[in-house]
């Protein structure tokens, strides 16, 4: 029992060392390109406005010099508002790989643009729902949904969104977006769904 433990430890060390090298390299390659381009492609104007406001938070000097105060008319009804921001891609759900809770580059881009919108609309809070596809077991999937919702939450707080504005709930596989037992339905259901909720 003790011998195998040591053996496995050594094997583990080697395996991890092997895994480390490509991890470091690939991440260096991926980072500067993907997220930046995706963001500017999809939501150019919003990110600009949002960016101005970020500066407002840290550099009080420029508060009054904001050149383009955006006066975008937002629907007052919450359902309508959620449809509005999702359709325009201002707020976007993060999708996950099978049995994964780590954020892909696409998911990061979606959350980045959502963070921008939240920054420029500080009067709203966000509910993050964690969902999974139907292929796993229900009980473990509830826990996986919780993890996904919180991965998204942590990413948003890392982007500077106040944690007090973000609430999470897991639905596991209990409330699927798409029905059907095929990959297109499954991939639709593996997500952190962002819902704008009440004003502060």
């Amino acid at each position: 029992m003790k011998n195998t433990m040591m053996k496995s430890f050594t094997v583990g060390l080697i395996l991890i060392a092997m895994a480390l090298i490509p991890a470091c390299r690939s991440s260096r390659k991926a980072k500067p390109t993907t997220p930046t381009t995706t963001v500017t492609e999809t939501v150019p104007d919003v990110s600009a406005t949002a960016a101005t406001e970020t500066v407002v938070d840290t550099q009080t000097d420029f508060v009054r010099e904001d050149p383009r105060p955006t006066t975008e008319e937002l629907p007052t009804d919450l359902d309508a508002l959620n449809r509005y921001v999702q359709e325009r891609g201002h707020v976007r759900d993060a999708f996950f790989g099978y049995d994964e809770s780590a954020l892909s580059a696409d998911a990061q881009a979606a959350l980045t643009s959502s963070a921008n919108w939240l920054r420029s609309n500080p009067q709203y809070n966000l509910l993050i729902e964690g969902h999974t596809d139907e292929r796993g077991t229900e009980q473990y999937n509830l826990a996986l949904g919780d993890r996904r919702a919180n991965t998204a939450r942590q990413f948003l707080t890392a982007l500077g969104i106040d944690g007090n504005r973000l609430r999470t709930v897991s639905y596991g596989e209990e409330r699927p977006f798409a029905t059907g037992s095929n990959e297109s339905a499954w991939s639709q259901n593996r997500r952190a769904h962002l819902v704008i909720v009440g004003t502060r």
Partner: peptide, 9 residues
């Protein structure tokens, strides 16, 4: 039961 804090069930 299963409880979670910060996405850690």
């Amino acid at each position: 039961f299963v409880g979670s804090t910060n996405g850690n069930p």
